[in-house]
Design a protein around this nucleic acid. Sequence first.
DNA 1: CATTGACGAGACTCTAGCGTCTCATTCAGG
DNA 2: CCTGAATGAGACGCTAGAGTCTCGTCAATG
Lengths: 192, 192
Amino acid sequence: MALATRERILEAAGATLSRNPNASLDQIAVDARVGRATVFRHFESRAGLLKALAGRAIAETDRATRLAAADARTATEALKLITRAVVGAGESFRFLDSAAELYDEPEIVEAYQRQMSELADLVGAARREGFIRPDLPTAWVVASIDGLIWAACRAVGDGELGVVQAKDLVWETIADGLSTEGAREDRHADQA
Amino acid sequence: MALATRERILEAAGATLSRNPNASLDQIAVDARVGRATVFRHFESRAGLLKALAGRAIAETDRATRLAAADARTATEALKLITRAVVGAGESFRFLDSAAELYDEPEIVEAYQRQMSELADLVGAARREGFIRPDLPTAWVVASIDGLIWAACRAVGDGELGVVQAKDLVWETIADGLSTEGAREDRHADQA
DNA sequence: CATTGACGAGACTCTAGCGTCTCATTCAGG
DNA sequence: CCTGAATGAGACGCTAGAGTCTCGTCAATG
């Protein structure tokens, strides 16, 4: 039962910290229906728990990413599948929103930067395929994809959208934006 | 000098908390080049400081919003101006990212919900003007605008983009998405 | 039935950080 | 020069929460 307990703690920690980023270990233990001492039996410290949780989220994202990438024949398609996959895995890493302590963990920071870098590479490849508007800096494309995924995960977590719906909406928004087809002309007219 | 000191504390608090959401009052005081006791002379408590900071951000956003709305003749134009204005004021409220304590302050929560509600109304009006794609739920439109603004503020704060550039990019992305004009067809082809 | 391992409960220590208070200093205005 | 307000420095008490330890219980296993 050791594994089940550890898993239950991680699960509860993720859920509780998503709601309250400063939740105490005591609160997490209660939510996991586990004694506080048991938390320390499975994790070295609070930081250790956070680290394990982050590592789990990173691994989950990597797994989803690789699965998605394997099915894609173009970078654009990979971008689409990966975006959808990450939205699906969103619950795993929503707690990261405000886990500022993790900035001190080199492994975690490195893994995060690696994932961002992979995303940037993918965006670059999609750009070469002609999918990305040439006038947008890659940094912004990456940042806004990140922002939209974040918004989608938030909306799902708040019950505003279903997961399936959110996946569709994120990709549609990336591809087409929020406005009707004629918007591009409207915008240019506005700016004149 | 009282006002200048208070202002300096608020300024330092915003900057410091943006970097480290769990920064101590001591750290904030040091960054403000002020004695820790002086912080308590100007603010009732840590919560009071946070509240003042949030109130300042809300007021700043309201001001920017009203100024922008006054110049607009259509809801679509208002949405554009307000989005740009909020990106410009982004530094003011970036610290809110992880100020979970503020969820306990009714005034702050109410003000935030009011602003979100105003944004939703504006989106609804822009939708009636034909600017917003009819197939997108308003909740998602609001969430993704929020997400894109957040991404832009983050990018500016990280030095990846300039403020002016970020304002343009957010609105362009809202209007047109990230992909080239032919994307809509590509996407439908992908899904087939 | 005895053993073993995981667990819950709870007592205990330790520290960071909040909030209060005091006292000396500085500086502006009269 | 005198006075009062604002401040800096720092001592002090207090509490929440991290981390440790012990003991009794339960369940599985032999």
